[in-house]
Design a protein around this nucleic acid. Structure first.
Lengths: 317, 317
DNA sequence: TAAAACATGACAACTATTGGCATGATTAAA
DNA sequence: TTTAATCATGCCAATAGTTGTCATGTTTTA
């Protein structure tokens, strides 16, 4: 076992060092240069992408990035990795795409027949679907890099009012429903805004300035405390209950009676009114809003607006 | 290198066989029993969970599942695996949860300081968010197993009309927006329906009957051919364009003028009318429906219904 | 009690690895 | 042009590691 261990040690050493001479290795490991040559030949045979340059100032160069010591996985673990990769299948722009391919290949080759079959089955019966959008996110990788380095950014952003320039400190990125979002601190007024990465049209990286705010986890888990709290009370039919349970921002507030019907009794923010009016419009008689009056008014107003846009036809036929 | 190779061969052999005697290995590999004992000691030292039972009918037993030959990963590849696992972080019920944990641990231990830091950063700046629902999907693993075995199922399903029993042949499962869905062939009338796995309240597995229909990939990629096609024509303000581009089922149909405004000109199915009416209600003046008349009527009708539900208050104040 | 298994030690025979030396090829700088 | 630094490869004796055989124990079950 002594040689194998040595080989692994040297593998790790050289894959990290990238460029070196045989003499250096010999000195580091207290072995002869002749043996180093033999070892490197072995590693090369084992698949390490290494090449040598002849002559003065020559030496060996390893092409791959730093390599981890060999790891033993169980079949189940390999399947779990495939499963996780599967979950990203429907994203269009992804960092680490090439790496995931090479991992898949290495793993798949090592699997035995049955396990290969299991993976194949898995991939044909499980998916993590999200709308495979026509929208591309070409700047995702750049944004990601900037975020990991905690840089501040100047971005060109496409919003309602056209393309504007913004100076921001990103908090992180997250994917949701097939799109990538980036909450960031707007440095001009110290407010946190949410950007869609596909709407970023240009990036310029400023020097890192380490203005620590919150991290992404915190941001995602904030239970946005309503700044202008308004009580919401809605009576639900059983179908209304079913539908509202599928609305992330409301599901926790749904109370269910034994007969299947139920109600919502919670506090929402002023800003959510508009969003909710759209929901309760859709639900119609399955959700009767009792409070707040503002929401009822909003729904009514919407209804009137629409009736104005779509007037009674002259020839109804 | 000869011994290491042997050891790996034996490792794979025994991890697959699980229970065996030293003599069996000796015969299989044409080596002496004494050497087998020595090898097994080596494997045990290397971390293979193996134990021996003494006495007649004794022998060795390997505790882990089948093990893959050692694999070399680059740091980048390890990071890619973490990244993929990250994407599943917001799911509540997942198969392979324990395996993913053990993989993470093995990988993380092998990483060097810098790479560890990189992974840590990654996890605090990237997320794949989906509504971390209160809804649990306890039967997911069972459903999954049934699907992989291509079994037919009798399920207790909670639908609009209460809990009913259905005899189905699942096509697959997929996750979307934090919930798990299962398209399946309803055997009573040969139609394909979509079930929500969290609404399955009970499962009974029938014998596999291999009634091949379509696979999940096909199902997801079907561009549901409209059975009752209706032309849809909508004029959009620039804000309307922006919003409709975020609607998966419409985005491909949005045409943009140079001034930012645009229009939708496509064919939809009769069944999608109701869904669209809700969308275009929300957009109000940002999206003016010109065709079909049925959709306009639906929006008007909705508006009237709501006005009936929420009548003009007696004291408007 | 005998048989079937693991556990471990000793040792000679065998095999693989190592280091040292020699030779050659290639390259860049003196 | 020469020299020094480097990889590449072959040979061989010294050294180190591995193997098989035999011996001796222990544990468990028929």
């Amino acid at each position: 076992m002594t040689k194998a261990k040595r080989l692994i040690d040297i593998l790790l050493f050289v894959s990290k060092k990238k460029k070196f001479t045989a003499q250096e290795i010999a000195d580091s490991f207290h072995i002869s240069v002749r043996t180093v040559h033999r070892y490197l030949l072995d590693l090369s045979d084992m698949g390490l992408p290494i090449y040598a340059e002849q002559g003065r100032h020559g030496g060996y160069t390893v092409l791959s990035n730093a390599i981890l010591p060999p790891i033993l996985f169980t079949e189940e673990e390999a399947v779990a990795i495939f499963f996780a990769f599967q979950s990203l299948h429907y994203y269009r722009d992804l960092p680490f795409n090439t790496e995931m391919k090479s991992v898949s290949q290495k793993l798949y080759e090592s699997l035995q027949k049955e396990a290969k079959k299991k993976v194949d089955t898995l991939q044909s019966y499980i998916a993590f679907w999200n709308p495979k959008r026509a929208i591309t996110t070409p700047l995702l990788t750049d944004v990601l890099e900037a975020i990991i380095n905690q840089s501040q950014l100047h971005i060109q952003y496409e919003s309602k009012s056209g393309i504007t320039s913004k100076h921001i400190q990103p908090i992180g990125v997250y994917a949701h429903d097939g799109l990538w979002y980036m909450p960031a601190l707007l440095l001009s007024n110290e407010r946190i805004l949410l950007f869609r990465v596909d709407r970023i049209k240009g990036i310029k990286i400023s020097e890192a300035n380490h203005k620590t705010t919150m991290n992404l986890q915190q941001w995602l888990e904030t239970d946005y405390e309503p700044q202008q709290p308004i009580p919401l009370y809605v009576e639900l039919s059983s179908e209304g209950v079913r539908q509202c349970l599928s609305e992330p921002h409301l599901e926790k507030a749904v109370v269910r009676h034994s007969d299947g019907t139920g109600y919502i009794d919670t506090i929402i923010d002023q800003h959510e009114l508009h969003f909710n009016s759209s929901l309760f419009f859709r639900l119609g008689q399955h959700a009767i809003v009792k409070e707040p009056y503002a929401l009822i008014q909003l729904i009514r107003q919407h209804a009137y607006e629409l009736l104005a846009i779509y007037p009674e036809p002259i020839e109804p036929l």
